[in-house]
């Protein structure tokens, strides 16, 4: 079982390296994960995407794909890649304290 020290506490991670327990998440933890992912600052645009991810997960039990983020979060694909370099859906899910999106199986 992997762990990481985030927000001053030792938190358990899942096999993909995302938080194992959603309840461990808070905004401070999010900022620290973001920093580890090479995103020094979470701007309001980052937060809009993160909050959208969390609301979809609450409703549907999975986080949205990049395509759906583009369609429904109001942020276009190019900008998503600027906000969350390399894999917006994967990275935003990790920072939002959610498991890796299942869609990519």
């Amino acid at each position: 079982m992997q762990t990481a020290i985030l927000g001053g506490k030792t938190l358990t991670l899942d096999a993909d390296g995302n938080l194992a327990d959603r309840n461990d998440w808070n905004e401070e933890v999010a900022r620290e994960i973001a920093a580890l992912e090479g995103i020094p600052e979470l701007t309001p645009q980052h937060w809009a995407v993160l909050n959208f991810m969390r609301s979809v997960f609450d409703k549907e039990g999975d986080s949205p794909s990049i395509r759906r983020l583009t369609k429904e979060s109001g942020v276009d694909t190019k900008t998503l890649y600027q906000l969350f370099p390399k894999g917006p859906a994967k990275k935003a899910a990790r920072i939002a304290g959610l498991p890796k999106p299942k869609g990519c199986i």
Partner: peptide, 8 residues
């Protein structure tokens, strides 16, 4: 191009 795909 994009996931998911048939027979990954």
């Amino acid at each position: 191009a994009e996931m998911p795909i048939k027979c990954p």
